[in-house]
Design a protein around this nucleic acid. Structure first.
Lengths: 213, 213
DNA sequence: TTTTAATTGAACGTAACCGTTCATTTTTAT
DNA sequence: ATAAAAATGAACGGTTACGTTCAATTAAAA
């Protein structure tokens, strides 16, 4: 009580066991929210699934809304990736674009993404932050990367566009078509590798035709 | 008890007042479900909004799920419309396509549709029937109409396509881009008439370039 | 070892909601 | 006018869930 007395506001929130529990809680929250949506999921069920006391959840995440938002954040980080392929010089524009389109199609048809899309969109009206957060880290980033890629191709004198962002959006539209709609409304779509490649090639060829010099 | 005694199983479900109440219930259900989603909406609130007893709701619609499904059915019928413009001969292909694209954009950006999209998609995992019902009456019909329009243009020798359905899907993709995504995740997008027309024209010109003869 | 923080289980108060029952009243067809 | 169906309000039982409190236990840092 004499020497080491001056450390009052100790915050040991990052104990290893706590970290582990928080991770488990988030994983359980993900599973529950994905399965039932926000309203139909209960903190109690999440606690049970995480093998954790309900009080623990409330001590780390103040409210149910908060827990959901944190889960979304983590999921965005997990889902966000760069679809745009590299090696423009060595592989040529068409190849790079096809690879990119294939990456997008692969991502689009993942069951995990479809569920995330459904749940998240439904909660946007309740909490608009989650929607904005997703847009900024997902679609916006993708569009920017695409526009950059397009600019590179233009710099090489291989294509032309008066509006790179609009062109990037067209690319997205051509690749997606209404696949996303079908998926969101419950259609089960399993593209084989060759089907995916063919669809990607069709979209890319159409897009290159539009932007040919 | 002598003459008019043989009509036992009388079903007067179509009384004018009943019809009125059913309509009010459906309207209230629509408002509640659109505002809160399925789980977070209560039959009690719907009854209150409709100015109707809770028992009345249960007597016409057996369950909450049923009420939701009926509401969706009505909404599908209300939302489904033919976007594809007519008068191919008198107006020319490009004009007809632009009108069609404008119709789609107009529909796409309607607040009502955005909310419907969010709610319905979220409930697909709970009841896949609603998703199928919507797909059949919405996107599928649109795609068929587009393919027919394209075929007409081809018959006139003005365009070409090896796969009309795929071409129709490209058209949809070009028009939508990722507008639907932005809208679903809470972006407020208000296209002016000229913005809408310009976007429609861009999409149509690109599409015609792809399918030129 | 001692001290501090994290965790737990159980219980609590409160509230909402589903779906049903019933006696009563209102509406409508005949 | 009368008989049948529809609608109502109130109440009920049962369930589920949120978020909190508290005393007791466990884990980790110093």
């Amino acid at each position: 009580m004499a020497d080491t007395d001056d450390n009052l506001a100790i915050e040991r929130a990052d104990r290893p066991s706590s970290q582990r529990k928080i991770a488990k809680i988030l994983a359980a929250a993900r599973a529950e929210f994905f399965g039932n949506g926000f309203s139909a999921s209960s903190i109690e069920a999440i606690a049970a699934r995480a093998g954790v006391s309900k009080v623990t959840i409330y001590s780390w995440f103040k409210t149910k809304e908060n827990l959901f938002a944190e889960m979304v954040k983590g999921e965005c980080a997990h889902l966000s990736q760069n679809f745009v392929a590299e090696n423009l010089e060595s592989k040529g524009v068409r190849e790079v674009l096809i690879d990119t389109a294939e990456n997008m199609l692969d991502f689009l048809t993942r069951d995990e993404r479809v569920r995330f899309d459904r749940i998240l969109a439904a909660e946007v009206s309740r909490d608009p932050r989650v929607g904005k957060y997703f847009l900024d880290n997902g679609p916006r980033a993708l569009l920017q990367n695409l526009a950059t890629l397009l600019q590179s191709a233009m710099d090489q004198g291989k294509m032309q566009s008066s509006d790179p962002i609009a062109s990037a959006e067209m690319f997205v539209g051509l690749v997606k078509g209404h696949l996303d709609l079908l998926l969101r409304y419950g259609e089960t779509i399993n593209l084989t590798a060759s089907q995916r490649r063919e669809r990607a090639a069709r979209a890319v060829d159409a897009w290159m035709l539009i932007h040919q010099k």
